[in-house]
């Protein structure tokens, strides 16, 4: 499967996650960012917000990164939410649409958090069926992001990266490889981050996420929390280099959601990602 960015996309430049407090400055400055990514859920209500995004869409390639589909829900996909996502995607014509390999809702109740699945054959069947349905309704392949995890289940019968690779094989979806999530999960669950990268099917990776995380101490032991509230740390930049070596120059994106700094800080992080992407050790895609 080939994941094609829309005309005008600049896959060799890093993008940033667009958050509302930066919107006005971005509109007035129009900095040279490769592309923008937003959570579609933030644009499913107020018409003014979607209209502002539509205007920005003329100047920047746009990616819709969903957090509300709950692809791993055993009771299926919320039809209303999927219809809203389709309407937004039809209107904004994003270069990429992505979601998470996780679940958030069950029986009409929503946690608004991304909870990992047990990596079992049953869960694989459920999420593959849901991804198939979403791709069919949207009329396009989507990227699936590996979650950041604080727990794993005894019931799992395969590693997470194998589960994700099998999801790709069954549905034709792509992968949004969040290297910070891999670092966080590897620490919290005792996994090998580089082995994780080696297991993913390189041709399916269509995007890389970069972000900061927090360190929480619980009874003297450290749990990493994926709060998107600080700069990317060096071990995650190292993992990013490994990811580029393995996957080539796929589009990267800086995520920042909590303790949002000035726009220039995000642009600075994106410039760092660009410098690494353009370094001579990275092989061509």
């Amino acid at each position: 499967m080939t994941l094609v960015l829309s005309p005008g996309a600049q896959p060799h430049r890093c993008g940033i996650g667009l958050r509302t407090p930066h919107m006005a400055e971005l509109v007035s400055r129009r900095p040279p960012i490769g592309w923008l990514e937003v959570h579609p859920e933030n644009y499913m209500g107020a018409p003014a917000a979607a209209a502002a995004l539509e205007r920005l869409r003329n100047d920047y390639p746009l990616s819709l990164h969903g957090v509300g589909l709950s692809l791993g829900s055993a009771d299926g996909i919320d039809a209303t939410h999927l219809a809203r996502l389709k309407a937004l995607a039809d209107r904004l014509q994003p270069c990429l649409v992505s979601e998470h390999m996780s679940w958030s809702g069950h029986g009409g109740a929503w946690l608004n958090d991304l909870v990992p699945l047990p990596y079992t054959e049953e869960a694989l069947n459920v999420i593959a069926r849901n991804v198939d349905h979403v791709q069919s309704v949207l009329g396009r392949p989507i990227l699936i992001e590996n979650p950041s995890s604080y727990l794993s289940y005894r019931a799992s019968t395969m590693p997470e990266a194998v589960f994700l690779a099998e999801l790709v094989r069954r549905t034709g979806c792509g992968i949004l490889c969040d290297v910070n999530n891999i670092h966080v999960s590897a620490h919290n669950l005792g996994l090998d981050a580089r082995e994780y990268l080696r297991t993913l099917p390189a041709a399916a990776v269509g995007e890389i996420h970069l972000a900061g995380h927090a360190r929480n101490e619980i009874d003297g032991k450290v749990m990493l929390i994926d709060d998107h509230g600080s700069r990317v740390i060096d071990p995650v930049w190292d993992l990013y280099r490994h990811a580029l070596d393995r996957f080539g120059t796929v589009p990267a994106m800086i995520e920042w959601d909590t303790a949002l700094p000035a726009l220039d800080v995000l642009l600075d992080e994106a410039a760092l990602a660009n410098a690494i992407m353009e370094a001579p050790h990275v092989r061509a895609a």
């Binding site: 499913m44 509300g68 929503w110 608004n112």
Partner: peptide
């Protein structure tokens, strides 16, 4: 009262 929809503006 957990949310009954995924979008926070509806909560």
């Amino acid at each position: 009262n957990l949310p009954d929809r995924p979008c926070l503006f509806e909560y």
